Simulated assay, not measured.
Amino acid sequence: MYHFNRVCFGLRCSPYLAMKTVKRLARDETDFPIASEIASDHLYMDDLGVSVDTPENGIQLAHDFIELFKRGGFDLVKFVSNSPEVLKSIPQANRLSSKIEFDKEDNMKLLGLIWSPVEDEFSIAIKFNPQAKCTKRLMLSTIAKLWDINGFCAPVILHAKLLIKALWVAQIDWDTEPPSDICAAWKRFLSELPALQDFKIPRFVGIVPESRVILLGFADASEKAMGASVYIFVQPASGPNEVNLIGAKSKVAPLK
């Protein structure tokens, strides 16, 4: 009889075991309370993203993260920051890139979003074949690649969901070409999809110490779909106010 001494990759239970192991590590290691709390609540599979107020706090937190995970036998690597001061404090082997100063093309992915550290902005990754045939299988495959966890592009994703609904209503087989109206709408959707690459979302929403923060929620519905969005209104002690979208959700109306 054999048993694993490591958390294996590729098994059906692997995602659960990985997250459970980290949560247990964060609970057991009490020497780093802030890092433990963040690791327990802000880790999504193998991505950990967090913001701090000052470079000094970032340097201390990065050090605590490395030591915390080292106690569990993990090497925490691929650190990246929009602060060169924070990056200089992190060992070379733990950084994402050998360069400290990031070029505008040095982007990284975080939960499906592209983050440019130098501009401190998110953008959407678009990968599709504009020449692909119009079939249910290829349409669903393309739509599944539109990963937008925060709903920044909810209106665009909703349009894709409506196309999926039209396919099911028409009872189209997987490799059968849909009716001409669906194909025309699909080709137009593909032709306009690259415009999302120019859509930029600021990571920093303006919250600083002593700010007044208000969350604003909106919702609406029609016969086709329903949607909701949440904005954050930040009123700092000095300087201009800021309003930014922080999340949205859309849902196609049911058939009945």
Results as ranks from 00 to 15, higher is better:
residue 161 K to Q: 13
residue 71 R to I: 08
residue 161 K to H: 09
residue 140 L to E: 09
residue 74 F to Y: 14
residue 20 K to L: 00
residue 206 G to M: 03
residue 59 I to C: 07
residue 35 A to Y: 15
residue 149 I to C: 08
residue 171 Q to H: 13
residue 103 D to T: 09
residue 192 E to M: 11
residue 222 S to P: 05
residue 221 A to W: 02
residue 10 G to K: 00
residue 240 P to Q: 12
residue 209 P to T: 11
residue 66 I to N: 05
residue 77 V to T: 15
residue 5 N to Y: 09
residue 180 S to N: 13
residue 124 I to Y: 10
residue 83 S to D: 08
residue 250 S to I: 08
residue 166 A to H: 13
residue 234 V to F: 03
residue 177 E to H: 05
residue 138 L to T: 00
residue 178 P to T: 05
residue 210 E to M: 00
residue 95 R to F: 02
residue 39 A to L: 11
residue 133 K to P: 05
residue 121 E to H: 08
residue 90 I to G: 07
residue 97 S to L: 15
residue 146 L to V: 14
residue 156 V to S: 02
residue 60 Q to S: 14
residue 176 T to R: 05
residue 30 T to N: 03
residue 100 I to N: 02
residue 44 Y to L: 03
residue 117 P to H: 06
residue 237 A to R: 13
residue 67 E to L: 12
residue 95 R to V: 11
residue 255 L to H: 10
residue 57 N to E: 15
residue 124 I to G: 02
residue 241 N to G: 08
residue 252 V to D: 10
residue 32 F to V: 05
residue 173 D to S: 15
residue 166 A to Y: 02
residue 221 A to E: 02
residue 22 V to G: 03
residue 40 S to I: 03
residue 101 E to S: 09
residue 55 P to G: 07
residue 120 D to M: 04
residue 207 I to R: 09
residue 252 V to P: 01
residue 101 E to A: 04
residue 228 A to T: 09
residue 28 D to T: 14
residue 166 A to S: 15
residue 46 D to E: 10
residue 33 P to F: 09
residue 107 N to F: 05
residue 44 Y to Q: 00
residue 225 A to E: 07
residue 101 E to V: 10
residue 218 F to H: 04
residue 49 G to I: 12
residue 89 S to K: 09
residue 223 E to C: 06
residue 200 K to Q: 07
residue 197 Q to Y: 01
residue 11 L to D: 02
residue 165 K to Q: 15
residue 197 Q to T: 15
residue 194 P to C: 06
residue 69 F to E: 04
residue 19 M to T: 15
residue 206 G to I: 08
residue 181 D to L: 14
residue 126 I to T: 10
residue 48 L to T: 06
residue 244 N to M: 01
residue 251 K to R: 15
residue 109 K to P: 06
residue 120 D to C: 00
residue 11 L to A: 12
residue 131 Q to F: 07
residue 168 W to H: 11
residue 221 A to Y: 03
residue 143 I to K: 01
residue 190 L to P: 00
residue 91 P to L: 03
residue 251 K to E: 11
residue 224 K to I: 01
residue 18 A to D: 01
residue 93 A to F: 01
residue 1 M to I: 12
residue 38 I to M: 02
residue 102 F to I: 08
residue 104 K to D: 08
residue 159 H to D: 14
residue 153 C to E: 11
residue 98 S to Y: 12
residue 21 T to P: 04
residue 69 F to D: 09
residue 192 E to L: 12
residue 203 R to M: 02
